[in-house]
Design a protein around this nucleic acid. Structure first.
Lengths: 151, 151
DNA sequence: ATGAATAAGTTTCAAATGTAACCAATTTTC
DNA sequence: GAAAATTGGTTACATTTGAAACTTATTCAT
């Protein structure tokens, strides 16, 4: 005999709960890079390029699941702020290879630890192991959602 | 000499992972109510009012953590579509008591199970118990974030 | 090779969102 | 019990967002 409540409450609705908690956590941590005049999208591009310089916008979009328009605009903004540079891509004339400038890298080196520290103020309030478990579950859910999407 | 990656990768960054997975899951399930011409905010208001009729917009906003402007607009839309009604609040002349119309309730009764079914296509791909664990962890993270926010 | 189809990135436009200013009703305070 | 402060809700505005159209470069088929 399994539980079978016909109508769930909103609180038991997966996408709702994910969204609420995600927004909340974002808001707490955003201030870290907002102070430096970075928007969320810009911050993500910065981080991904820092991770692996030489990526194209296409790569960044795929990696972060951001829209390509969003990425385009973020790169433009970062470029204007002289935080990333775009070099011609010898392999493909349509795209450019992204790298951080010295300033960009410095900013990344400064912000990421700060954001991390802020994230830790949440992390530290979780029971031992729960944080790690969450990451694993999120990965599983991600895979499950991807599979469910294409069915 | 142990590896010491002072700088985390974006994938290990809690708000980022939450946001990516949350958006993904939302997108998969949204179509359920999008087909009925409901936006996310409207859908949430509908669900919360269905849960407990007689709530005010203030209540709904608090309950869902939505912005009060968002709630205001959603209620307006739902009201125009004749899915909710606003009755005068005897206790406070500024606010109104929200209830579902017959049509609104019918829509809720139809959509919620459908959305749930869609959510199940994800749920069913998770290892046993993992889904429940996720909900618990989300609650914990929520509390932790709230605590961290006001420190 | 050469034209058709596809892909990277940008631009445009319309819709969605949030912030701040605002109005009206309520509560507080003296 | 009136003025001040607060609160529920709406409006206006500025920003953000994504979808679709567009441009240029690349790949595919023949």
């Amino acid at each position: 005999m399994s539980k079978a409540p016909q109508i769930l409450k909103l609180d038991d609705f997966l996408p709702y709960r994910l969204s609420v908690v995600s927004n909340l956590v974002s808001r707490v941590i955003e201030e870290t890079y907002m102070e430096d005049g970075l928007k969320q999208a810009e911050w993500r591009v910065l981080a991904v390029v820092a991770e692996a310089p030489g990526r194209t916008q296409r790569d960044v979009a795929a990696r972060t699941r951001m829209d390509k328009v969003t990425v385009s605009r973020a790169v433009q903004a970062l470029s204007e702020k002289a935080l990333v540079t775009r070099a011609a891509n010898p392999a493909d004339g349509r795209s450019q290879l992204l790298t951080l400038t010295k300033t960009g890298d410095a900013m990344y080196q400064r912000i990421m630890p700060a954001a991390q520290a802020k994230a830790l103020t949440i992390w530290d309030r979780l029971p031992a192991g729960e944080g790690d478990a969450l990451f694993e579950t999120l990965a599983t859910v991600e895979a499950a959602a991807l599979a469910a999407a294409k069915e």
